[in-house]
Amino acid sequence: MQTEGKVFKYEDNVDTDVIIPARYLNITDTAELAAHCMEDIDRRYIREVAEGDVIVAGWNFGCGSSREHAPLVIKESGAGCVIAKSFARIFYRNAVNIGLPILECEEAADEIRAGDRVKIDFDTGIITDVTSKKTFQSRPFPPFIRKIMESGGLLPSLKAAALPEDGGDNT
């Protein structure tokens, strides 16, 4: 798995209310919802984002509500990955569960600039900034989470009976 695209850059604490404002949560169509992705902090985003592009942000990306609509609209908008210094917990598990690739990497989040072109190899966790020619090593996913991602999300993986390798499924 890999992605390549240009970078949209944001600060710390990007919350789910700006990723997708609650005033749109009565919409059920994902494409219609995604038209409002990021609009409260960046109206350019939805106009300019292309398939495979990458969001780079600071600490605590996705804080706030549990709305799965947040990673869903990012995925629907075409973004191929979110790189952040850290993710809010529920956003992290929602992204995993719906199959939106996310990577934690402090160095990359600091050094990659808005508009840069980046290439990400999800198997190795290596992030390459093609514009600045720098590379960064992100923390790879534990095997259980990789399995969910590779099956395309939690429900498909449950159907495939993927369970944590070191886990305590006691059935």
């Binding site: 549990s66 709305r67 799965e68 990673p71 529920i90 598990r93 929602n94 569960n97 719906i98 999300g153 939690l154 429900l155 449950l158």
Partner: peptide, 13 residues
């Protein structure tokens, strides 16, 4: 708190 996919999986399993 979790997301809707977790809820779906939780309801099922």
């Amino acid at each position: 708190g979790v997301g809707s996919t977790d809820m779906a999986a939780g309801m099922a399993t």
